[in-house]
């Protein structure tokens, strides 16, 4: 099930993806965004994100350090999950449509976790320029544990 979804997501990827955004006039409260499933987090993922994100806290990349700090193992940066959630949004609308984007980090993301990001349109607010949509966001792992919740406001 999970794998078929990943294949489907990949088929929507590629270089022309930027051209294919949703037409917001066709969506309604209750509609779900196309979900985004990411591959399992590896130590390599965390090493890359450590370097790429400028967050060099060793707790995310150095198992010896993590264990000396009382943790079982290294764990993912919260901002990695939020970056994934950002991709859910920018796969759906141009980034310029995002008015605000906020998350609450709920549970630790460990090595081996497979994160799936989902969003649902929860409200539509009329504005001077058209309308804004409120999107409720949720990221879960392969066991269904909620790792992150949030909200984004999208302008028409």
């Amino acid at each position: 099930m999970k794998h078929s979804k990943q294949v489907q997501d990949l088929s929507l990827g590629g270089t022309n993806k930027a051209m294919r955004k949703v037409d917001l006039t066709t969506v309604a409260v209750g509609d779900e965004l196309p979900e985004l499933s990411k591959p399992a987090i590896t130590r390599t993922t965390l090493a890359y994100f450590c370097g790429a994100s400028n967050d060099h806290n060793p707790i995310h990349v150095d198992s010896d350090f993590a264990q000396a700090s009382g943790k079982d193992d290294v764990f993912a940066h919260g901002m990695l999950d939020m970056a994934y959630m950002g991709q859910l949004l920018t796969n759906w609308v141009p980034q310029s449509a995002i008015v605000s984007f906020g998350v609450k980090f709920g549970a630790i993301v460990y090595v081996g976790d497979e994160i799936t990001c989902r969003g649902v349109i929860s409200d539509r607010i009329e504005t001077d320029l058209g309308f804004n949509l409120v999107i409720k966001l949720k990221a879960t792992d392969q066991r269904g544990e909620v790792k992150l919740t949030g909200e984004a406001v999208i302008r028409q």
């Binding site: 806290n57 700090s69 980034q95 605000s100 906020g102 998350v103 980090f105």
Partner: peptide
């Protein structure tokens, strides 16, 4: 203590790219 630090919330408002 940075080793005991957890990020709990993050919020952005956007105005220009």
């Amino acid at each position: 203590d940075v080793t005991k630090l957890l990020h709990t919330n993050q919020y952005f408002e956007y105005f220009a790219p």
